[in-house]
Amino acid sequence: MTFTAHFNYWVAMALLTVGLYIVIARGNLVKKLVGLSIFQTSVYLLYISAGKIIGGTAPIIAEGLRVYSNPLPHVLILTAIVVGVATLALGLALVVRIKEAYGTIEEDEIHSQDEEP
């Protein structure tokens, strides 16, 4: 097995780990959402990498071309991206409301405010 055989997948996993780390370790809610979107894009990379065929081309049928990459992951990820931004916007809207209610978007400060009677 060569180094390149799984390199794309490993980078996807590394990005996923980075995203996961930001979501767990950071208290700032906006930063958490950025981490979540990194997590999400790593999944895009994973799917699209799996659909690639070496020597293939984009799945738009044309004369003179025979090998096409798999179109199915493209369809799934294309819609996932747009759904992703819509849910990101929903998360950000919640963050804005939290800021208005608590005056902060740091998780620790929100918790300490909740514990006060």
């Binding site: 699209i48 984009a58 931004v85 804005v96």
Partner: peptide, 29 residues
């Protein structure tokens, strides 16, 4: 990786709309 449709979406959504939304949030928070 041959996913031209997806790349177009990612460029307009990820680099365009998401950035605008995040900046809008930062302005408020």
């Amino acid at each position: 990786l041959d996913a031209v449709d997806v790349a177009m979406t990612e460029a307009s959504v990820g680099a365009g709309i998401s950035t605008v939304l995040l900046l809008g949030t930062l302005y408020l928070t």
